[in-house]
Design a protein around this nucleic acid. Structure first.
Lengths: 245, 245
DNA sequence: TAGAGCAACTTGTACAAACAAGCGAGACCT
DNA sequence: AGGTCTCGCTTGTTTGTACAAGTTGCTCTA
C-alpha cells in the first residue's frame, strides 16, 4: 500500500471515528508531514483523496475543514449489489428470471460500442434485500462475455465477484444515469407494488480496465429502498444534471 | 489561470471536439510535457483533472484512454437551476409561492448545524423550464441569511447569483441525496401531474466556503424532465448508494 | 470604536530527480 | 503454433525546493 494511501486511511478513520468533528479544522500540512514523517507532497496527495471523497473541504490560505464523516464506498461496493449489501450489514439475494440472446437495439449498440444488430445477452434479475424484493435488473451483456454469464448459477449472489473469479474480468469504469419512472406491469408484479408507483431508475454502463464496454443495465429500485448520495464542491464535481430526453 | 488548468482545458477541448475518439489513447506524459513545455508533474496534475471528471481512464503501465466526451458541469451550474438551464440552452423561470419564518424541525437543525427550534426561513418555489413547470423547491435557510433572502424579488431567476451580488455569499460545498417519491397533493397541483405519480427527489444541503451550512432543500422534479449523471471508477468514486430510511 | 493595513501562517503551483511497478510487444524456446 | 520471458515504455510514488496567493488575527491609526 502506498504511503499516501496509508495516511489518507488514518485521517479518514479519525474523521469517521469522530476525532475531528464536522466543521472542525484539520491539522496543517506541515504538522501532518512531521507526524507521519513524510514529505509535504505526500501529505497533500493523501488529503486530496479525502477532498475528492467530499469528506474534507479545502481552499487556499485557510485551514482545511471536515465536511462529512461517512465512509464512502469503493467502486466495487457501488457496482455490486451483493458487495454493497454486505458492507452495509444487509443480506442480498438474487434470482435470474429470464436470460436470452437477441440482436442488440441501436441504443444498446451505442452504449456497448458494438454494431447495431450484433448479438447480446439480455438478463432479467430480481434482487432482494433481507428477503424483500427491492430491485429489478435488466442487464445487457456484450457477446464476448455472454458465455461466462450464461454459465453462472441463476441464484448467484454476486455476478461481479463470480465473473472475476471465473474469467478474471474486472469492472473498472461506470457511467450512471439516475431518474424516476413509473412502475410498468412487470416491475409492479415483481416488486410487489402498484402499477404506476414511483421507482428510482439507474441506467448504467460498465467497462473493463481497457475501456471496453461489458454491460449496460436498467435497474429499478422500489421507492424508499435505496438512496444515492453525492458530495461535491467548487473544486471537486462529479454530479451532473441533464434535461430529460 | 494555473498552468495545469490551461493544459487540462486544452486536452478537454480536444476530447470534446473529437480529436481523441472514445477508446483512443492519449499522448504519453512525456510527450505532453514537451508539447506544453511543462514539467511532468504539472502534466500529471492536468490529466488528474480529466480523470476525476470521468473523461479519461488511467492505470499504471498502460497508456491513458478516453472514456467519454461530454463536458462536465461546474459546481455553480449544478447548484443553480437558472445557471444550469442557461448553460444547456433552456430558459429558467421561477416564482416564490410561499415564504415564512418558523422554528426549525430537529432534522433541519441537524442538517443546518443549528439548535432545534431556532428560527429558519422556509420558502416554497415553483421552477419552470421553457415555461413548463418541472420542479418544486422547498428550501429552508438558516436565520443568518434569511433577511437577504426575504429581500429578493419573488420572481428572481437565480437566487444563487443574487445572493452573491447582494451579500457576497458563495455556495461552495453540497451534499445531495437522490431518490424517488410519489407526488403529494401539493406537488401534483403545482407540477400538473396526477397524485402518486413518480417524482425524482433531490435533498441537498449547501454550505458556504467556511463550511457553514446555508440552506437545505427538498427539490422534486417531474419525471422525465431531469436526469442526474455520474461517472466513476475504481480510482475516482463519488457516488454512494444508501439503504432507504 | 471602526476601519485599514501589515505580518505570520497556510494552502496552491511548478520544477526537478529518482526509483517502483505494471503493461505490452517482440524474441525465444519447445 | 503456442506459450514463456525479457526488455523497453509508461504511469505511479516520494522527496525536496522555491515561490505565489489567499486567510486570519493583530496592531495601528483616524
Amino acid at each position: 500500500m502506498a504511503r499516501y494511501e496509508h495516511i489518507a486511511g488514518e485521517l479518514r478513520d479519525a474523521i469517521v471515528r469522530g476525532d475531528y468533528q464536522i466543521g472542525a479544522q484539520l491539522p496543517t500540512e506541515a504538522e501532518l508531514a512531521s507526524r507521519f514523517n513524510a514529505a509535504r507532497g505526500t501529505v497533500r496527495q493523501a488529503v486530496a483523496v479525502l477532498v475528492s471523497e467530499g469528506l474534507v473541504g479545502t481552499r487556499q490560505g485557510a485551514r482545511r475543514i471536515v465536511l462529512g464523516s461517512e465512509r464512502s464506498q469503493s467502486f466495487a461496493e457501488l457496482h455490486s449489489f451483493a458487495q454493497w449489501a454486505r458492507s452495509v450489514g444487509h443480506r442480498a439475494g438474487g434470482l435470474v428470471l429470464d436470460s436470452r440472446r437477441r440482436p442488440s437495439t441501436s441504443s444498446e449498440a451505442v452504449r456497448l460500442a458494438i454494431t447495431p444488430g450484433e448479438e447480446v445477452l439480455a438478463v432479467l434479475r430480481l434482487r432482494r434485500l433481507d428477503g424483500e424484493p427491492v430491485l429489478v435488473e435488466r442487464t445487457v451483456y456484450a457477446s464476448w462475455i455472454a458465455p461466462a454469464v450464461e454459465k453462472l448459477d441463476p441464484a448467484c449472489e454476486s455476478v461481479t465477484q463470480e465473473l472475476y473469479e471465473t474469467v478474471g474480468l474486472v469492472f473498472a469504469y461506470g457511467e450512471h444515469l439516475i431518474d424516476a419512472v413509473a412502475a410498468g406491469a412487470e416491475d409492479a408484479r415483481l416488486l410487489g407494488v402498484r402499477r404506476g408507483s414511483p421507482l428510482l431508475r439507474q441506467r448504467r454502463t460498465t467497462t473493463s480496465q481497457e475501456g471496453r464496454p461489458v454491460e449496460c443495465s436498467d435497474d429499478r429500485y422500489r421507492a424508499g429502498s435505496v438512496t444515492f448520495s453525492i458530495r461535491n464542491s467548487t473544486t471537486a464535481n462529479s454530479l451532473v444534471r441533464r434535461a430529460g430526453d
